[in-house]
């Protein structure tokens, strides 16, 4: 849905979304990477199972929640990518202890 205006060059990293390796750039948010994918959604709602994607990008809406490096319900718009990061789209609620 979104495209980058530039080639990250030196700043190029690689992250995994649901196990698939995708390019990313140092300094950008995980939500920004999600929004460049074919499927932009980040989570299924716990109530009706509908798809949601990052919406506000400023930490207000919580629609960008996903699992990042094993931790559930992370606000991906507030999370900066790291090389090798593992992101999993979140299906429903996280477990309480996560």
């Amino acid at each position: 849905m979104f495209r980058k205006l530039h080639d990250p060059g030196q700043a190029a990293l690689r992250v995994y979304i649901d196990g698939v390796a995708v390019p990313a750039e140092a300094g950008e948010s995980v939500a920004a990477v999600l929004l460049r994918q074919e499927a932009v959604w980040s989570r299924l709602t716990p109530v009706k199972g509908s798809k949601r994607a990052p919406y506000c990008l400023m930490g207000v809406c919580f629609d960008c929640l996903a699992e990042v490096d094993g931790v559930g319900s992370v606000q991906t718009c507030l999370t900066t990518v790291q090389d090798g990061m593992r992101i999993a789209r979140q299906r429903g609620k996280r477990s309480l202890g996560a």
Binding site: L5, G27, S29, V40, L57
Partner: peptide
């Protein structure tokens, strides 16, 4: 308004600042 594909304009601008990205179409 909850459908993926809809974002706020503020979000669009943050994506431009933070990731240098714009809507593909």
């Amino acid at each position: 308004w909850t459908l993926p594909g809809i974002l706020t304009v503020g979000a669009g601008q943050i994506l431009l600042k933070n990731a240098g990205q714009v809507p593909a179409k």
